[in-house]
Amino acid sequence: MDADKIVALVTAGGIELTDRRRNTTDDGWSLSFANGATVEVGDDGSARIAGKGSKTVAGLLDLPVASRGI
């Protein structure tokens, strides 16, 4: 799953994207959402979800919280 797809799915659920930037190792994107969730998405398609609203975002993406997945 790429960053654009993650943003599309989460924002379609009414959760605004509040920040998007390349990560410090320049191998992926760091996304922040209005409900407090953050998603670290790698250029390889891996994703890690954390923060206050992580359960909701994980549900929208069909991904587990704080674990890596495609």
């Binding site: 605004e16 509040t18 959402f33 209005a34 409900n35 407090g36 923060g51 206050k52 609203g53």
Partner: peptide
């Protein structure tokens, strides 16, 4: 002009 989080709890940012 677009969403930022409050500096005080309850806030999206821990």
């Amino acid at each position: 002009v677009n969403t930022m989080q409050p500096p005080y709890q309850p806030s999206g940012n821990d």
